[in-house]
């Protein structure tokens, strides 16, 4: 996803001279190299200074520039939290904060590098919008929106590398709308972010016609109308997210179920409220939190 991000941003920056990116110690040899080489004056590497990254992004935005602030998710959202709240959200500046390698992706780096509560934190700040694309193609759509956005800040939660595309033949992406990725008649899996691959992995020949998969890529503002339609159509809903069970997609859906008088069952696969340690792989860490394809498969047949 980080390569897709950089490719897409170069395209946009080619057309629009106002596009700037502020990064905190991202290796120029990595995915951002092309942008840096092409638009030297619009690439600002502040080094290991995340508070300054957000403050500078705010200053550029106050001068009407289109600004992206980009680094690994924990550094982009947690370290400069007050700058995000005061400089961006309070002043309602349309800066996109990109959290790369979000959720449990950096499992082998340990808990300091995970963002298992980022959505919960970002969601509660007024004026913040949140986008969580599930694959590189969806990310392209999100970036286009971010570059045009004038409403206020966006937290763009993305993956890292090697993500497959799932949405090529799906309905069109639209900001703020839950998107059906795959149709089925019985059970709906609602997810966001690259963990959607678990939903696809869980489907086999016998369940492929019965399961729908939705990408709730816009967490804020949330598509309550779209959710209502899903509630009316399915009796079983499985929510799948790479985030704490507190304050993320599952929270939104369960809160809405009460409001919208949903009578069916909701199964919620999310991270436990705990700093579990598993350094071998993201898959093994998610397993410790109880998230596996096998478990989703079982829930489909319940």
């Amino acid at each position: 996803m980080r390569n897709k991000f950089s490719e897409e941003l170069v395209k946009i920056a080619n057309k629009n001279k106002s596009v700037h990116i502020v990064v905190a110690d991202i290796s120029p040899a990595g995915s951002m190299e092309k942008f840096q080489k092409k638009f030297k004056n619009r690439f600002i590497n502040v080094g290991v200074s995340e508070q300054a990254m957000i403050g500078i992004a705010a200053g550029l935005s106050l001068q009407k520039k289109i600004v992206f602030a980009y680094t690994i998710a924990n550094f982009s959202l947690y370290r400069p939290f007050e700058m995000i709240r005061n400089d961006l959200c309070y002043q309602k500046l349309p800066v996109t904060i990109v959290g790369m390698g979000s959720g449990t992706i950096y499992a082998n780096l340990g808990g300091t590098h995970l963002t298992q509560e980022d959505v919960s934190v970002a969601r509660s700040i007024p004026n913040m919008q949140i986008l969580i694309p599930c694959d590189p193609d969806e990310l392209s759509e999100c970036i286009k929106y971010c570059a045009k956005n004038k409403k206020g800040p966006i937290y763009l939660k993305i993956g890292k590398s090697g993500e497959k595309n799932f949405t090529r033949n799906s309905e069109k992406w639209a900001f703020g709308k839950i998107r059906k990725i795959k149709s089925g008649y019985k059970t709906a899996i609602i997810s966001c972010g690259p963990i959607i691959r678990y939903a696809f992995g869980a489907i086999n020949n016998s369940s492929k016609d019965s399961v729908s998969i939705y990408s709730a890529h816009t967490l804020k503002p949330f598509d309550y109308n779209g959710l209502k339609k899903i509630f009316n159509k399915y009796k079983t809903i499985i929510v799948l997210e790479d985030h704490s069970y507190i304050g993320g997609l599952g929270s939104i859906i369960k809160e809405s179920a009460y409001e919208l008088k949903f009578k069916g069952k909701i199964h919620h696969l999310a991270l436990k409220d705990d700093f579990l340690k598993e350094y071998s792989s993201q898959e093994n860490l998610l397993k410790k939190h109880g998230i596996t394809e096998k478990k989703i498969r079982k829930l489909i047949y319940k």
Partner: peptide, 12 residues
């Protein structure tokens, strides 16, 4: 907060 905002403005 003010100095970093100023730095962003100074770049632009």
């Amino acid at each position: 907060h003010g100095l970093a905002i100023a730095a962003g403005m100074a770049i632009a």
